[in-house]
Amino acid sequence: MVTKQLSAISYKLSGKKATIIKKQRSAISSQPSGKKTKIINLPLTKKDVLGLKVGDVVLINGLIVTGRDKIHQFLFYEKPSKKDIPFDLSGTILFHCGPIIKKTDDGYTMISAGPTTSIRVDMYESKIISDYGIRGIIGKGGMGENTLKAMKKNGCVYLHTIGGAAAYLADKIKRVIDVWKLEEFGMPEAMWLLEVEGFPAIVTMDAHGKSLHKEIEKESHKILQRLLKM
């Protein structure tokens, strides 16, 4: 199942055949060394996603795509069909990121790549999750109630990574494989297809409707009321 979906990723733009690591292993496994750390091997199924809970520390392996403001707006309003998108988005992770990438003679080199604030694309995300079969969102800051509902309904998780740690995270990106909409949207806003290895994140919104952000917000507001004596 895993292999089949991986190989389904096509490269219409460049036409080049990328070598994809095909690994016959379960999509999620526990790391023997770290008690709490789980390993995610992409792509994911709904069942895999249901195995992830708020608070899980994960390391991600496989192919992911980036997308921020413009990609979200485009997918939401223009509704391109799956065959019009050069990458297979089903079962993969959408990374809210506008990276710094340098063009080299034989492709691209990743320089710096951390998460961007996810809440900005909140109004588009629930539709994108359900239309394109996204199983995970990597970002920072968390997302709202509608996205949380869509995650529960469709089987998707929010993977909070470390905002600002862009050199560290760039080193977890092993390859820049391809890009879509580079000319039209520019480097930060294009959709980049990346291969990651050991990319760290924490599950802060799960497919069971739980959100760490909601809990912390509730608690901090209680403290605020006390501080303001209201």
């Binding site: 990121c97 320089i111 710096s112 951390g114 961007t116 600002g164 740690a165 862009a166 050199a167 760039a170």
Partner: peptide
């Protein structure tokens, strides 16, 4: 050490 932007949003 690697003289790279510490955050991608410069």
């Amino acid at each position: 050490e690697t003289v790279r932007p510490l955050c991608q949003d410069t």
